[in-house]
Design a binder for these strands. Structure first.
Lengths: 142, 142
DNA sequence: TTAAATTATGTTATATTATAACGTTTTCGA
DNA sequence: TCGAAAACGTTATAATATAACATAATTTAA
């Protein structure tokens, strides 16, 4: 959370009470969390909360790189390294729902390489690998 | 289209008129196409077309690997190699909207490797790289 | 070959996710 | 402290997707 404050300071961005609260809620969840889940929680705290309330906060947090959107789940998760620019790459467990953010140089290079060969300029990368995490495999899921 | 028929034959799957038509419509589009776009076209042909009409056909086609779903666009595109099992990997142009399916061994290996190292068993892979295609870059987009 | 089972489709309704549009309040810098 | 910009409130609606149950078509098997 402190690093979020710092980051906003550096960029002249305003981490308002609402935005901070949404970021907290995302971090509190140990799984990717949907916009309407966040909204349900916010409604207990601010009687006026509506979809734009949460989507605007999410847009802000996404823009700054403080959270990632997981496309295959329509859900959001805190970024584990918001201060470094990096692609969004996740291992997503179909059983427990956990999403582990990963950084892998081979993967980065492979994508950079193939895009380059194709003459394609890269703006954004999405890698979402669905399967079963080590923990759930132990419980018998394969 | 013939290869779709063949594939269904092999698997004992029923490529009905509706499913065949949806597949045709997807192939006719030179860009990823949304479910409701398909529905609008179908409505001109079958007065009864409703969302489940198209979503069920899409589910069937996805299951067989005849089409891919592009998560970041909520849209669907024909698979260029439906007879071989392969991950879903795309270069998506933010300008013209084209999505090029790619196959890259380095990428496959990178994902297999990192999943393995993490003890994660892979069920499904999504790679969606957004940017600008060579064609649009020539037109001045970067 | 026909009855039962399965699969596919029709139909109505609704759930889920996301944004448009406009007004008000707050914040910030000149 | 005033004017502009940014953030937020509020209402409405758009876009995407599925639930649930009825009917029709097809396959299986007795």
């Amino acid at each position: 959370m402190q690093s979020a404050v710092d980051l906003c300071g550096q960029r002249g961005a305003r981490l308002t009470a609402l935005r901070r609260r949404v970021l907290e809620l995302i971090w509190k969840s140990h799984k990717p969390v949907g916009a309407y889940e966040l909204l349900d929680i916010l409604k207990n705290e601010r009687r006026n909360a509506q979809p734009p309330t949460v989507y605007r906060a999410l847009d802000f947090l996404l823009e700054l790189g403080l959270v990632h959107r997981i496309e295959s789940l329509n859900a959001f998760i805190g970024c584990c390294a918001p201060d470094t620019a990096h692609p969004s790459q996740f291992l997503i467990c179909r059983d427990c729902g956990a999403a582990a953010e990963i950084t892998d140089n081979r993967l980065d290079k492979a994508i950079a390489g193939l895009a380059d060969e194709a003459g394609f300029s890269v703006l954004h990368r999405i890698v979402e690998v669905a399967g079963h995490c080590p923990n759930c495999r132990e419980q018998g899921y394969e």
